[in-house]
Amino acid sequence: MGSTSSGRPTGARDRDDEGRARNARPRDGLGRPLPYGADGVARQPEGVVRTPEQSVVEAQELLDAGKPFHAHEVFEDAWKAGPEEERELWRGLAQLAVGLTHAARGNVTGGARLLRRGAGAVEAWGSPVGAGRSPVGAGRAQPYGMDLAGLAAWARELAEDVERDEGSVDAQARAPRLRA
């Protein structure tokens, strides 16, 4: 099988074994597609079942390395594979990671919006019952050692900074600390 001038294999379709579309283009550390044939960052495997503690540790390592897009994939796996009562927590964490990804890419509006949405989700999940809050997660301000109030404050501050400065941020320098 040959390849096109862009380095993409001819006749190849980016599909997995079940026929779902999979973009095989290499990606940079923020998940942006690179030209076929370029050296990219290894992709985060999808569908990995981890313990919650493993998810937190792995996501923190990726955030610390300036790879929030990849951390989002870890949170997404936890959201999809975890217990129903924790899905909103993991989805909120994934939104925080994607918000940081967009902010690092220079997407001011999308970054700020996702950071605030994720902040609200993690804060609501760990808040005491009341003010219309669900009892799921009530009083769990630090599940798996994570400081949900601190993460929400970090996300809102970053959203304000992104909107004020209207530019991209350094994902590694602005990575949150998941645990207190």
Score class of each variant (00 low, 15 high):
57 V>A: 05
121 A>Q: 02
39 D>Y: 07
57 V>G: 03
137 G>A: 03
73 E>R: 06
86 E>Q: 09
131 A>C: 09
74 V>R: 01
25 R>C: 01
38 A>N: 03
27 R>T: 08
104 A>G: 14
156 R>C: 02
129 V>D: 12
162 V>C: 01
53 E>W: 04
106 G>W: 15
76 E>V: 00
121 A>K: 04
80 K>P: 02
170 D>K: 09
24 A>E: 08
52 P>E: 02
69 F>E: 09
54 Q>D: 11
104 A>C: 15
106 G>K: 15
174 R>G: 12
25 R>E: 01
55 S>P: 10
51 T>V: 11
25 R>T: 00
67 K>H: 14
148 L>D: 11
137 G>I: 06
67 K>F: 05
85 E>T: 13
175 A>I: 09
133 R>D: 07
43 R>S: 12
108 V>L: 15
51 T>H: 07
62 L>N: 12
129 V>M: 11
117 R>K: 12
88 E>G: 05
127 S>I: 00
103 A>V: 13
99 G>Q: 14
95 Q>L: 05
140 R>T: 06
144 Y>S: 01
88 E>V: 04
56 V>R: 09
58 E>L: 14
152 A>R: 04
151 L>G: 08
154 W>Y: 01
91 R>V: 00
99 G>K: 11
66 G>E: 13
175 A>Y: 07
43 R>F: 08
65 A>C: 08
30 L>G: 14
169 V>K: 11
161 D>E: 11
160 E>W: 01
